[in-house]
């Protein structure tokens, strides 16, 4: 502690003077100087140890062989190793047991649910929507209507092998004929009228004639009562949910040219545990059977 003000002393100046104010040439504080030297030494060591000097083919590698990409890769590997027991647990459990498992189950805090959500938002949301409510031609996954089945096993199969994904041998496949090729416009109009009558839309009325046309052409897949066949991926025509729309024009288009939505198979692109996680997540959104 300076007890008395320092006596005014002669101090070397730099010779710079502005309006009588002189720039003193005082020495640097000792700690400051030492810090500077320490920084220089540290800097030399850093250039040797770490990537530092940019060259055309990339920076000098440095003795420690550090790279930020390598660090990320190591971090990911560490997280994968940390999650390995959880992943193994998901793979060994029966699909129906995952959601309630002590280790990986549970909503909001469960590994399966959260992992499934991440998979869904990355790979599925483009078509099915971030809220999984679908778009025209892309089914909603949160209602109670399923074309190919809504049990967790069904969902798992659909994700794994896709729908009409032709390069996958196990894919779900069926083909609706384009009835415009062998039915007249009047006959198609009659079928549309009958289909409308099944769920009471479009003010449609069933007659013996259009029922006959339906039974001859459609019932093989959609069943005699129109409730559809999940084995053939034939939608239920008696409910309130329409994948492509329920007005007369859309239905006419559907019958004339047929519909054949395609979903990619994810086996090979996603790991088995990721597919299982996605199935758990989708099953929990309110539509699961």
């Amino acid at each position: 502690m300076a007890k008395k003000p320092v006596e005014k002393q002669e101090v070397e100046t730099t010779g710079h003077e502005w309006d009588g104010i002189q720039e003193f040439n005082n020495p640097l504080p000792r700690w400051w100087l030492w810090t500077t030297y320490a920084c220089i030494i540290w800097g030399i060591g850093y250039v040797i140890a770490y990537p530092a000097i940019p060259l055309p083919g990339g920076a000098t590698p440095g003795l420690l062989g550090y790279s930020s990409r390598g660090e990320v890769a190591a971090d990911i590997a560490a997280i994968d190793a940390m999650n390995a027991p959880l992943v193994a647990r998901i793979n060994e459990l029966d699909l129906t047991e995952i959601a309630t498992d002590d280790l990986v189950g549970g909503e909001a805090d469960g590994f399966a649910y959260n992992g499934g959500q991440a998979v869904f938002q990355t790979f599925c949301a483009q078509c099915h929507g971030a809220g999984a409510n679908g778009f025209v031609g892309y089914p909603s996954l949160i209602d109670d209507d399923w074309i190919w089945g809504g049990t967790i096993e069904d969902i798992h199969t659909t994700i794994s092998y896709g729908i009409r994904h032709e390069t996958n041998l196990d894919t779900r496949i069926s083909e609706m004929p384009a009835f415009g090729e062998f039915l007249s416009k009047e006959e198609i109009g009659d079928i549309v009228e009958y289909v409308g009558s099944l769920s009471g839309i479009n003010g449609a009325v069933a007659t013996e004639e259009n029922e006959m046309l339906f039974l001859d052409n459609c019932a093989a897949c959609h069943m005699d009562d129109g409730t559809g066949d999940r084995f053939a991926g034939a939608p239920n025509l008696t409910d309130a949910i329409w994948l492509y729309g329920s007005d007369v024009e859309t239905l006419t288009h559907t019958v004339t040219f047929a519909r054949a939505g395609v979903m990619p198979a994810w086996e090979g692109r996603l790991s088995e545990s990721q597919i299982r996680q996605a199935a758990v997540y989708i099953h929990s959104l309110g539509g699961g059977e």
Partner: peptide
């Protein structure tokens, strides 16, 4: 997202 969903009935 979505604000509501219609069920099959």
């Amino acid at each position: 997202n979505p604000t509501y969903i219609m069920l099959s009935d």
